[in-house]
Nucleic acid binder design. Structure first.
Length: 480
RNA sequence: CGGCGUGUGGCUCAGUUUGGUAGAGCGCUACGUUCGGGACGUAGAGGCCGCAGGUUCGAAUCCUGUCACGCCGACCA
């Protein structure tokens, strides 16, 4: 149909060029704008509002587990960054340095935080004296800078917004418990709020965070079959505590090192929403992460009473607790439909003279495009039901996509063939030797995403790469 | 950091090969007609052709340098 075709002309089809499709959606949905600094973007109102919803709902979940928010500086003295060896080595290649204050060179250069472990450690070493001072469960919302070579909006920018939680505990058990707890907070948040299914698991040593004893991750699968690390939670053991001298006096009057964790989620989640849910018409927001949940589009709005009715419906829905807007711009209705779809607004309500006459309106779902007639008196209730349904259906659809794109490979031939022909997750056994991981990455470009906590029954007992005995099931895939 | 590509009104691009008065479509402004899947008419506004040098009577166009952006790799949330 010519008309159908016209709908998509502004956005490249995802089957033609997924990367271009992503960029088109990001621009057309007005989430960001590029700036004169590579890798740094303007997050526009439509994009920032999504972040605000993420922040609010995540923050509530954090606080329910006892997290308190703080703010630490954005600069780290070089000497501080260098205290933990693995950590510096991991981050040194991508830090930005401040070398001058005004016109004068600094005595010691300062790095712009790429993450704040070292600052939290420096802070905790004075803050923590006794077992009574523990645990410390702090979090900060801020931006960090990592001088990436290649950048993409939301997925990999040089400056990005995130939250980083940093905790200190008396025992290793408590730290481990917190690490897992936060990973679960993340996973539940992704599934319940973002309607995005995730795989929880542990990173291999090769993929774990610089300085961590263990890194846990949630991995999501994008529409094109590539994986996206969507949140991480690290257990540092007492490594940082030893490097920074963070000790407390326990009940038995002995000095002990604290055990620490850190965990973070970023604006990358917005990229995940785009790539998990979006389609050729644009963005598709899950209702709980949609800054505008309902767009009311008046038809023949110049006609007396139409705009008034639209505003009336808006008030009714706003009072019902929904996020609602009326598009009263002087564009044509068809234009407004397309805009609502590109912006991913979950529901639109069409209201025109014919509807007013019949005391009805038409509701259209963004996810299925289904059109539903609704009596005006039932609108708020119906909208509530539909938003819930959409939230649920979007999750189910995404879940089905992950299941349909998760494969098993029993030997290396099958593995290579699967990587090449079937984008998605591949379950395969691994002997635990990093040389196999390296080889697989080099030869197939797939990386180990995680060793999943669930669905990890061995599929055989041989390493998919070298054939030696293997008891780790690893989820592999090409990643962003 | 390597490979490829692109910089011309707000946007998408033509013009560059072969130097000669800066173009189109969309968008924008005003008025009018329209309005249930990207409406139309009329009249307007808007550009040191990324930046800096050079060659030339004359440069968007040729030369040198530089900056930025995009895509693909290596590094990463």
């Amino acid at each position: 149909m010519a008309k159908e075709k016209k709908l998509v002309e502004a956005i490249t089809s995802m089957d033609v060029d997924f990367a271009q499709w992503y960029t088109d959606v990001v621009k057309k949905a007005e989430l960001i704008d590029y700036t004169s600094v590579k890798g740094c973007m303007v997050i526009k109102p439509a994009g920032y509002a999504i972040w605000e919803l993420i922040q609010k709902q995540l923050d509530e979940r954090f606080k329910a587990t006892g997290v308190e928010n703080v703010y630490l500086p954005m600069f780290i003295p070089e000497s501080l960054l260098q205290k933990e060896k693995d950590h510096v080595e991991g981050f040194a290649p991508e830090v930005a340095w401040v070398t001058h204050g005004g016109l004068n060179p600094l005595q010691e250069r300062l790095c712009v935080r790429p993450t704040s472990e070292t600052l939290f450690c420096d802070f905790y070493k004075n803050e923590i004296q006794s077992y009574r001072d523990l645990p410390k469960v702090y979090n900060q919302w801020c931006s960090v800078v990592r001088w990436e070579k290649e950048t993409r909006p939301f997925l990999r920018s040089r400056e990005f917004l995130w939250q980083e939680g940093h905790t200190a505990h008396a025992t290793a058990e408590e730290a481990e418990e917190r690490t897992v707890q936060m990973l679960n907070v993340y996973a539940d948040f992704c599934e319940e709020v973002l309607a995005m299914p995730v795989i929880r698991g542990r990173k291999t040593d090769k993929e774990k965070f610089a300085g961590a004893e263990a890194t846990y991750t949630i991995e999501a699968l994008m529409h094109d079959g590539k994986a996206l690390q969507s949140g991480t939670s690290h257990n540092f053991g007492d490594g940082f505590a030893k490097a920074f001298g963070i000790q407390y006096t326990d009940k038995d009057n002995t000095l002990k090192y604290v055990h620490q964790t850190s965990w973070g989620m970023t604006t990358r989640l917005i990229g995940a929403i785009i790539m998990v849910h979006g389609d050729d018409s644009g963005l598709k927001l899950p209702p709980k992460a949609a800054p505008v949940q309902v767009m009311i589009i008046p038809i023949r709005q110049q006609q007396e009473g139409v705009l008034e009715k639209a505003d009336e419906l808006k008030k009714c829905l706003t009072d019902g607790g929904f996020r609602v807007k009326v598009d009263d711009s002087d564009k044509s209705p068809g234009w407004k439909f397309s805009e609502q779809e590109m912006r991913g607004i979950p529901l639109r309500v069409e209201i025109g003279p014919k509807d007013i006459e019949a005391e009805k309106c038409v509701i259209v779902r963004r996810d299925t495009r289904e059109k539903i007639e609704c009596n005006l008196g039932d609108l708020a209730q119906k909208v509530g039901e539909l938003l819930q349904q959409i939230q649920k259906d979007m999750y189910e659809t995404a879940k089905a996509h992950v299941q349909a794109h998760t494969y098993e490979a029993h030997d290396y031939e099958e593995f290579k063939k699967t990587v090449e022909e079937k984008p998605g997750f591949i379950k395969a056994m691994w002997c635990g030797d990093q040389s196999c991981e390296d080889k697989i990455k080099e030869e197939t470009s797939a990386t180990s995403r995680c060793m999943p906590f669930e669905g990890n029954e061995p599929i055989n007992n041989k390493c998919v790469c070298c054939g030696r005995p293997a008891d780790h099931l690893v989820l592999w895939g090409k990643a962003y």
